[in-house]
């Protein structure tokens, strides 16, 4: 889709309006975010047209027919309606909706698949599991796991398999693309990809209670060989993730970034077992009834 001729103009306008702060959603670094940005600009363009039409009509009518000295005795005629006018303002919105619906549906389907630009590459699978209030990233093929940070290779599609150990969260890395929910007992999937190396902000976007605000992580997108080196290093140097350690990490709270040379998938896949966390609480004598109230 090449709707983006105007995008430079719009983005400079938007940046101007928002002061000096950057707008990561409109400054994507991957094909998913890019597709979404194109859609956003296309809709802003059409919607500005709608806004303009209404505002201009509104202003003209208000200025022209406002009661004022010299225009205060005129008795308006009654009007029932006007077939043609009403057809026009039903018809044009229908056309606008079609103009929006087509690219929307196309993009919805497109985002279900790995990005076109790297279709020859096998996607890297990462299980992203949310637990109150931390992130577990398991790399099953590499047999490593990180907590609260994420390394990915650039120019390779990443297939995130999302689930949650407890409350419903949402994985969101604005500069790479939109979010998707993590739900206990469910598995959702989302493709993301970074086109250039860099450090991106990621977070849980869906409210999960007390520690929600700091439920964040950093994404390190690296060139392929650097990424491989990082994987190798982690495999060599990081400790194994024992079940006891994992259970302990499931208790609500925040933890520092950590790395392990095995994954929690050996003990549980929360997408298959919604009850695991509550049982782990019980094993450790943690009672949310007592801790949760205030």
């Amino acid at each position: 889709m090449k709707f983006v001729k105007h995008s430079f103009l719009f983005s400079s306008l938007l940046l101007f309006l928002s002061g000096c702060s950057a707008l990561p959603v409109l400054d994507p670094k991957g094909p998913v975010g890019e597709a979404q940005k194109d859609l956003i600009f296309w809709s802003i363009f059409l919607m500005l047209f709608v806004v303009m039409v209404v505002f201009v009509l509104f202003t003209i009518i208000l200025v022209r027919y406002r009661e004022r000295p010299g225009y205060d005795s005129h008795e308006p005629e009654e009007m029932e309606g006007n077939k043609w006018l009403e057809l026009i303002w039903t018809g044009i919105p229908i056309i606008i909706v079609i103009l929006l619906a087509v690219p929307t549906v196309r993009t919805i389907y497109q985002l279900e698949e790995p990005p076109q630009s790297t279709r020859d590459k096998e996607p890297l699978v990462i299980h992203a599991t949310s637990a109150n209030w931390k992130w577990f990233f398991s790399y099953p093929e590499q047999d490593i796991e990180t907590v609260n940070y994420l390394h990915i290779p650039e120019d390779q599609p990443i297939l995130f398999k999302l689930t949650s150990a407890d409350s419903m969260a949402a994985l969101w890395i604005p500069q790479l693309g939109g979010q998707e929910y993590n739900m206990a007992g469910m598995m959702t999937e989302i493709y993301l990809q970074a086109d250039e190396p860099g450090v991106y902000d990621g977070r849980n976007a869906n409210f999960t209670g007390e520690g929600f605000t700091e439920h964040t992580f950093k994404v390190y997108a690296q060139e392929e060989d650097e990424f491989d080196a990082w994987v190798e290093e982690t495999r060599q140097e990081a400790p194994k993730l024992t079940q006891d350690k994992y259970d302990e990490l499931l208790l609500p709270g925040h933890v520092e970034t950590q790395a392990y040379s095995s994954t929690h998938l050996e003990y549980v896949n929360h997408a298959m077992d919604a009850e695991y966390t509550l049982k782990a609480y019980e094993r450790q004598g943690y009672d949310p009834e007592k801790e949760g109230s205030h």
């Binding site: 919607m47 929006l100 929307t104």
Partner: peptide
């Protein structure tokens, strides 16, 4: 009228699921 139109057109923007993945929860 003008304010509701602004709310309305941004509602249309939100209705586009693929773009909504970026707007949702924000």
């Amino acid at each position: 009228i003008p304010n509701f139109v602004i709310g309305g057109v941004t509602g249309v923007m939100l209705s586009m699921a693929a773009a909504d993945y970026q707007y949702h929860n924000t």
